[in-house]
């Protein structure tokens, strides 16, 4: 394998060097620079769909997602500005208003990434009207529950099921605002024969959309570190 080149760049004015092919997000995290994310899960393919990790790049008029944009020599990145905060807050407002996130009565209250993100971005209210869609709760699986009311369509469950577990039980149906997470051929989860009941989807879900049965709210803590471990194991084998 050819040795990878080192690229030097600036993030928030700080001089940084890192390996060619790294994303801005990876490099920022290596250097403890915080960039908000919701759809990104370390070890899974980055999709750039939540748009919270958008950063400014000097010389480019466009905002680019840190999770999918690779670094290049001489790049200068701004991860935090008034403008970015304003956009991130509105994106979070749109996300929160899309479905029925009633935090007070959620299984993930207190350890939900969406809820925490509102706090991190100093959001004390939602800026757009709530949509209140009528959605289902699928509790047909023996061990897990899918509550569509609390799903932000980040696709982490779809990706982990496909990329790590290799089952591809979960996917997305529909388009636009009607997009929805499905199991197998839009069946009840309990009837989805491809599901291995591994529970990885539950662990990577950032909200209370996926939860474990029989656990109290305080026990619903999600553990995610296994993903990059499993991915590296797999890479070693291949």
């Amino acid at each position: 394998m050819a040795t990878k080149q080192v690229k030097t760049l600036k993030i928030d004015g700080m001089d940084i060097s890192s390996i060619q092919g790294s994303s801005i997000l990876e490099v920022a995290r290596e250097h403890d620079i915080y960039i908000p994310t919701l759809c990104f899960v370390e070890g899974l393919c980055a999709v750039g769909s939540c748009r919270l990790c958008l950063v400014e790049i000097e010389g480019s008029g466009k905002l680019l997602p840190a999770c999918t944009t690779q670094i290049y020599e001489g790049m200068s990145v701004i991860t935090n500005s008034e403008k970015l905060l304003k956009y991130r807050q509105m994106i979070l407002s749109l996300m929160f208003a899309e479905r029925n996130h009633t935090c007070a009565v959620c299984v993930s209250n207190g350890h939900c990434d969406l809820q925490a993100m509102l706090q991190i971005l100093h959001m004390d209210h939602i800026k757009v009207p709530y949509m209140f869609p009528r959605l289902k709760v699928d509790a047909t699986h023996d061990r897990f529950v899918m509550d569509h009311n609390r799903c932000i369509l980040c696709s982490a469950c779809v990706r982990v099921c496909d990329e790590i577990e290799g089952a591809h039980t979960k996917d997305i149906e529909g388009r636009g605002i009607k997009s929805n997470i499905i199991t197998d051929f839009a069946q009840n989860w309990g009837d989805a024969s491809s599901c291995t009941t591994c529970g990885k989807c539950v662990q990577v879900c950032p909200t209370g959309a996926l939860s474990e049965k029989g656990k109290a709210v305080s026990e619903q803590l999600k553990r995610r570190s296994f993903v990059s471990y499993l991915k590296s194991m797999r890479e070693d084998v291949l």
Partner: peptide, 15 residues
């Protein structure tokens, strides 16, 4: 939360 987001009171909006 009820004043800020509608919260539990607003859950009836679904129906």
């Amino acid at each position: 939360d009820c004043a800020v987001t509608g919260n539990v009171s607003a859950m009836r909006n679904i129906f």
